[in-house]
Write a protein that binds this DNA or RNA. Structure first.
Length: 503
RNA sequence: GGGCCGUUAGCUCAGUCGGUAGAGCAGCUGGCUUUUAACCAGUUUGUCGUGCGUUCGAUUCGCACACGGCCCA
């Protein structure tokens, strides 16, 4: 009989270290339960340090506190009759002091064979060593889970980005900085949720699988829904459904969830990314800029404890009022040789676009040209948080027209360190205008723009029932976490970034 | 999709102007009852990413491919 593929792979993957550990596990199996689950702890490393680091050796000796702690062995210093183990749990590291004479007969000899990476539990007295390190002097120690594979190098850790992403668990075991990134991510999302709930927003979940992908200019992933026998899409945004909910009377809603865009991968783009999207009735884009500014400031304080932080060697200040510039004003401000007037005519804008080496597509209107020029000569250069407003109608098919200048919308995006962090606007609630904008999108799609939107008839119907005056915004959660954690790549803040399957 | 860089022991890395490889850590053996990346002595481990080519000989040179990273579109 041929061995299965899995067996083959396992065999190929084996080396001496794994074989030795597997043999140790076999010995454990022969003695009884090799993977026990009856050890209970009453202490965590981090709490022990927080509570007792200040106590002296003598004070601890008088108290003679008994604790039981558990975790993964990350360092060991074994001597003939006594040893020190550094054990890591979810809160940090605590040292175990293991003395042969305090353990039952024969246990110390077994213990000496345990490996770095094993999960152990120990019970004993809290004490301080002569060098002042808080430790648990164990009178009972058990191997709770045998680790068959050697951990990465104990000091330099795991550096190989491919392994860090593919085997994130290893990265998390070994690299404290990586653990911190993901706890910061969790705190950010928690604080965001609390911020909105405190302001009477209701959290909702809307479909990931949609028959018409809407709400964003992006190419969707496609799939087939067997039970309905229908081709479907993974959503590119929850926008249209959230606004349907506002039509339904939920005047403040938000969703923190994944969006999927079948597009390029880069340090700033992941095809599967997390977005906060929220809608507030009886508010406009100006209200949301104010809310965004306050929310970002609040999150920074709550999550990293300061509104001033360093991102890739640049100090970012969320404490000062965020700059606000119109799209055309920003282009003019960052390029002293460009005048807003030149940007306002099709011929002038084309000329400027060509100066920046932009390949002008014939189907582009003035608005698209202006957007391209902005991206070419402003976006990357914005460092401190800056709202850009008044985006052209052509590139904002769901946003409300400005009352005084109908060629632009009441829309903003906020940029930090050359990256768009959020996009919001007063919602277009005129169903007839929206229908016309959808028709323009369909024309663009037919002309070959894969990112153009579909015509969503039901959404128009919803608007015809009446969407109250509303503003909404999407916030790139991953990108915000990148800022808070000083991470250069979006993959660094996603636990399991997509990788090409290994062959 | 294009450009550049990388892939060597379980991990972190060196190296070979072409003669099949080393260090530290981890592992193993021995010693050590307050260590701190413990220490001391000894010791094991590699399809040098894959394939093809050039060559007497390729981990090293060339080409292709795979995977990853960064930049650009």
């Amino acid at each position: 009989m041929c061995p299965s593929k899995n067996q083959l792979e396992t065999e190929i993957d084996e080396n001496d270290i794994i074989a030795q550990r597997r043999s140790k596990l076999a010995d454990m199996r022969s003695l009884g339960i090799a993977f026990p689950n009856d050890f209970r702890r009453d202490a965590f490393a981090g709490e022990l340090h927080a509570k007792y680091d200040e106590k002296t050796k003598e004070e601890l000796a008088v108290d003679a506190m008994q604790v039981s702690a558990a975790g993964r062995v990350v360092l060991k210093r074994v001597m003939g009759k006594a040893s020190f183990l550094t054990v890591q749990d979810v809160t940090g590291r605590i040292q175990f002091y293991v003395r042969k004479e305090e353990l039952p007969e024969g246990i110390y000899e077994d213990f000496r064979k345990w490996d770095i990476g094993d999960i152990v539990g120990g019970v004993g007295q809290l004490m301080k060593t002569n060098k002042g390190e808080l430790s648990v002097q164990v009178n009972s120690i058990r191997l709770l889970t045998k680790s068959l594979r050697p951990l990465p190098e104990k000091h330099k850790g795991l550096a190989d980005t491919e392994i860090r992403y593919r085997q994130r668990y290893l990265d998390l075991i070994v690299n404290e900085a990586s653990r911190n990134v993901f706890t910061t991510r969790s705190k950010t999302i928690h604080a965001m949720r609390r911020y909105l709930i405190e302001r009477d927003f209701m959290e909702v979940e809307t479909p990931m699988i949609q028959s018409i992908p809407g709400g964003g200019a992006a190419e969707p992933f496609t799939t087939h829904y067997n039970a309905l026998d229908a081709d479907m899409y993974l959503r590119v945004a929850p926008e249209l459904n959230l606004k349907r909910l506002v039509v339904g009377g939920f005047e403040r809603v938000f969703e923190i969830n994944r969006n999927f865009r079948n597009e390029g991968v880069s340090t700033k783009h992941s095809p599967e990314f997390t977005m906060l999207e929220y809608y507030q009735a009886f508010a406009d884009y100006d209200d949301l800029m104010n809310l965004t500014e306050d929310m970002f400031r609040t999150l920074a304080m709550q999550v990293i404890g300061t509104t001033e932080f360093v991102y890739q060697n640049t100090t970012i200040d969320f404490g000062k009022p965020f700059a606000r510039l119109t799209l055309l004003g920003a282009i003019a401000q960052f390029n002293s040789d460009i005048d807003e007037k030149d940007l306002s005519s099709l011929s002038g804008a084309k000329k400027i676009a060509k100066q920046f080496g932009i390949e002008v597509n014939k189907s582009w209107g003035l608005g698209k040209l202006q957007m391209e020029i902005f991206e070419a000569c402003v976006e990357d250069r914005i460092e401190q948080p800056t709202f850009i407003t008044q985006y052209p109608i052509e590139v904002s098919p769901l946003a409300r027209r400005n009352d005084t200048d109908p060629s632009v919308t009441d829309r903003f995006e906020i940029f930090v360190m050359g990256t768009e962090i959020a996009n919001g606007f007063s919602e277009l609630n005129d169903p007839e205008d929206q229908a016309e904008r959808f028709r323009q999108q369909v024309l663009a799609k037919e002309a070959g723009d894969n990112e153009a939107m579909h015509y969503d008839e039901d959404y128009i119907t919803a608007l015809e029932y009446g969407l109250p005056p509303t503003a909404g915004e999407g916030v790139g959660v991953d990108r915000l976490v990148m800022l808070f954690t000083d991470s250069p790549s979006i993959r660094d803040v996603i636990l399991f970034p997509h990788m090409r399957p290994k062959k």
